[in-house]
């Protein structure tokens, strides 16, 4: 694998994670538990789609085959998507949606903070913009975890159930392979160990305040980065890609 190929794969991973989570959050638009939350979730979806576009555009540039952000988002099939499974899971109730955002943000923020020091200028620039957004997002998802955990009996139960169900999907966030290994050596992407330590610190602090239990680190799901997804992703893509597939080559 060349450095260029590794960088392309890395950008796709970042792009796909953000794209698919943004898509799931978009499903909430108009259906949130109150207007303020509707606005906040849509804001999150917008931030994530913006980040996805930055990564997919850059992926296209790095690849050098004239593929646009839309070619990459709309014309790849299930097995070619390399997002983690965490982001493709259905939304579930609001506690699930928030818990997923929180776990994602707690990983995403230290990762992007570290990427600000990337030897690749474009990755550093994308990260600098994203960090501002994710700092705010982590604050809001963490606040909701605390409200749910320390709110009512029902909200506590729902938040704990969500955490328990989602926990096995967090392992994949920290998994690395030859793509990261090669890029870490070149100073383009950070080592994962400090990101994991920051994630643990955030999660432990927020869950403690929320009076929620951190689930045990047992079996962890994997496969997303290799394009081995859950059955949910195919339906998500069928919906998302419908117009591009039904009217090949059309401009919108």
């Amino acid at each position: 694998m060349t450095q260029q190929e590794a960088l392309f794969s890395y950008c796709l991973r970042r792009g796909d994670d953000n794209l698919i989570l943004s898509h799931r959050l978009g499903e909430w638009c108009g259906h949130g538990p109150q207007l303020e939350e509707d606005i906040a979730l849509t804001n999150r979806a917008l931030d994530l789609i913006g980040q996805a576009r930055n990564y997919l555009q850059y992926a296209g540039t790095v690849e050098g085959k004239q593929r646009s952000e839309d070619d990459l988002a709309y014309l790849r099939a299930e097995r070619q998507f390399v997002n983690v499974k965490l982001v493709e899971m259905p939304n579930g109730d609001y506690a699930h949606t928030i818990a997923r955002c929180f776990l994602y943000d707690a990983w995403h923020l230290p990762l992007q903070q570290a990427l600000m020091n990337s030897a690749d200028e474009q990755l550093a620039a994308i990260a600098a913009k994203a960090v501002k957004e994710i700092t705010y997002q982590l604050k809001t998802s963490g606040d909701w975890m605390i409200r749910f955990g320390d709110g009512t009996e029902e909200s506590h139960r729902r938040a704990q159930t969500a955490l328990d169900e989602l926990w096995s999907y967090t392992g994949e966030l920290f998994a690395t392979n030859e793509v990261e290994a090669l890029l870490v050596k070149a100073g383009i992407v950070p080592e994962m160990a400090p990101i994991k330590a920051a994630f643990d610190a955030t999660v432990n602090a927020v869950l403690a305040e929320a009076t929620l239990k951190r689930p045990p680190d047992g079996f962890m799901m994997s496969g997303g980065r290799q394009g081995k997804h859950s059955e949910h992703l195919g339906f998500l893509l069928a919906e998302m890609q419908y117009l591009q597939r039904a009217y090949p080559g059309a401009t919108w």
């Binding site: 978009g26 917008l46 988002a73 709309y74 419908y242």
Partner: peptide, 13 residues
Amino acid sequence: TRAPNLRRKAILL
């Protein structure tokens, strides 16, 4: 969820 491209999806959101 069915917007035809990423730009349109962001605008619609």
